[in-house]
């Protein structure tokens, strides 16, 4: 249907003096996709979005939108819409004027502006607030106003820079769902920057995980979760984070603190590895690793256990069966296919 909104980044490098903020970013986003840029602060995800928007320009590399090289093009000529973290509503204009502004700049006729503004406002349910100034709106309403301003022009790209981070927790969850519905109904390509892995996991069709100016992994959220391709991605995705313990692989088994666990990986020879096990994949079963329960965080339907295993600390999430007491000795294990192995030196997935 809508075939606009394809993005391609080719070897994008961004230098700030001698500091390289982006060290060669490559990715392609397909039309209509919801694409998340996920990473800790300072990882380069916001810089990437700003370069895509035209607010910053790369030091080298090429940005292509819909088959055209736009690298040197000003933001105003790129036909992209953006929702800012601070919303950046124009305080001296009413909600109506705010939403109408992009249309005005695009020289849309007066007669067409009015219905278009009402339509956009209706989609985000603020059509009753059109005469207010941004200062008279709640945080959630301001956020919707920013959304309406972004969707009114039907731009080919919809950029969102941590749009939910200024909302309180409950509103954030509601808005997240609506945002996803809105993007689906518009069929527009969305690029979404966030440091919240849960947001990225739930919203995105695909995501790119950023660390220190580089993309560590691109893929569907479930893929990235199931097969993190490095120790850093594994530690970043999932809550509580994956247990990562130094160990040694030999012959279909990993050895941790002198105890062996069977794994489904088949690698030639024996080598030092980092063993990764998601807390949710840990099972309290006999015949595993002997550990002591340090702390129990009871969350009602599940409980998170802090365990000591020799010199290592592990976390396990248990959702059924009896919850052990603090100080109790337990035996933990994991299914062979739930054990991730990373190279101890390159820290890459094996």
């Amino acid at each position: 249907m809508n075939m606009r909104g394809q993005v391609h980044f080719d070897r994008i490098v961004k230098m700030h003096g001698n500091f390289s903020a982006l060290k060669g970013i490559d990715f392609t986003i397909q039309p209509g996709e919801f694409f998340a840029l996920l990473g800790p602060s300072g990882s380069g995800k916001s810089t990437t979005l700003r370069i895509l928007a035209g607010l910053d320009m790369p030091t080298s590399g090429t940005v292509v939108i819909d088959g055209k090289d736009v690298t040197a093009l000003d933001a105003k000529d790129r036909d992209v819409a953006m929702v800012f973290q601070s919303y950046a509503l124009y305080p001296h204009m009413t909600v109506f004027e705010n939403i109408a502004f992009p249309l005005e700049m695009a020289k849309v006729g007066k007669a067409e502006i009015e219905p278009a503004v009402r339509e956009a406002a209706r989609k985000v349910k603020i059509d009753h607030l059109l005469d207010r100034k941004p200062g008279q709106l709640s945080g959630g309403q301001q956020q919707r106003c920013a959304l309406a301003r972004a969707i009114v022009r039907k731009a080919r790209l919809f950029l969102l820079d941590e749009p939910l981070s200024n909302l309180d927790a409950k509103l954030r969850l509601e808005t997240r769902i609506e945002l996803k519905k809105l993007q689906r109904s518009l069929g527009v390509t969305a690029v979404y920057v966030t440091h919240d892995q849960e947001e990225a996991m739930t919203l995105a069709d695909r995501m790119a995980v950023f660390m220190e100016g580089q993309i560590q992994q691109i893929g569907r959220p479930s893929e990235v979760f199931a097969k993190p391709n490095s120790v850093d991605v594994a530690a970043f995705i999932g809550s509580p984070p994956m247990n990562l313990i130094e160990g040694r692989y030999a012959d279909g088994h990993v050895e941790i603190e002198g105890h062996r666990l069977r794994t489904s990986h088949q690698i030639a020879g024996s080598r030092n590895v980092i063993v990764g096990i998601r807390p949710g994949a840990m099972r309290l079963e006999a015949g595993g690793l002997p550990a002591t329960v340090d702390l129990v965080e009871d969350l009602g339907d599940t409980a998170v256990l802090d365990l000591t295993l020799g010199g290592a600390t592990l976390r396990a999430r248990v959702s059924d069966g009896p919850v052990p007491k603090e100080g109790q000795a337990v035996s933990v294990t994991a299914r062979p296919e739930d054990i991730h192995l990373f190279d101890a030196t390159t820290r890459k997935r094996l």
Binding site: K14, D56, M57, P58, T59, D69, T71, A72, L73
Partner: peptide, 13 residues
Amino acid sequence: LGRVMSPSGTDYS
């Protein structure tokens, strides 16, 4: 559209 600079190896910033 790269009318200001050539696309290869130039500092767009």
